[in-house]
Amino acid sequence: MTAVVDAPSGASPETAPEVGAVPTFDVTLRIRRYNPEVAGDEAYWEEFTVTAHGTDRVLDAMHKIKWELDGSLTFRRSCAHGICGSDAMRINGRNRLACKALLKDLNPDKPITIEPIKGLPVEKDLVVDMEPFFASYREIMPFLITSGNEPSKERLQSAEQRERYDDTTKCILCAACTSSCPVFWTDGQYFGPAAIVNAHRFIFDSRDEGGTQRLEILNDKEGVWRCRTTFNCTEACPRGIEVTKAIQEVKRAMITRAF
């Protein structure tokens, strides 16, 4: 087939739309900025417009801004494919990972709003202080607890027993769930969904013997009972973990397991 040079792409009936060649489009990002060092204590909005490609993610657009327009725009990121948990942010009002949110899925006709996740102190632009989040995580004793002598080989566990807690092992500690939780917004002392998810990962592991201690910790006034089952966390989780279900299971274990 001879190529028709000046036909608009995709217009000719013989040219199948090219899978590899994706159209470009302009997209505007409306970003919540905050930098006490230069701009005072007030946060403000700033808009940037960049050209994006069909498969670009929000993270690509943010890099474009940082690399070509404003080097001071600050956010965390590392892996760029949803596995390290660095770049949870509020994108069009929903918590997501910037590296997993495709621009084309976000209606690029309107400005896309980007804000830091809520409930944790903002340090600069999209960077929040993660320490309170990790402190809650550490409190639920997120490690295998066993007694007696170590076996000389592996501990046995059936495929079914392994499956029981598979879902909650997927957590990448991105804080999307915790920072989408209305209870956490109003009461920063609440452990939050992520800590409970990680407690669940051990409470339902057949090899673990620390369930009672963890349930006691979570029975605290800032523990699981504060959860009001709003499902925000489940919707926010980029790993598809059934967060609310995990919290429910921990609640149930508290009632049924004697301690």
Binding site: F143, E154, R155, L156, Q157, Y165
Partner: peptide, 19 residues
């Protein structure tokens, strides 16, 4: 590998429950 299992790593299992 056994160290990691004893630290709690959730390896996939054989029908006998081994790694």
């Amino acid at each position: 590998v056994l160290d990691l299992e004893r630290m709690g790593l959730p390896f996939n299992r054989t029908p006998e429950g081994k790694i």
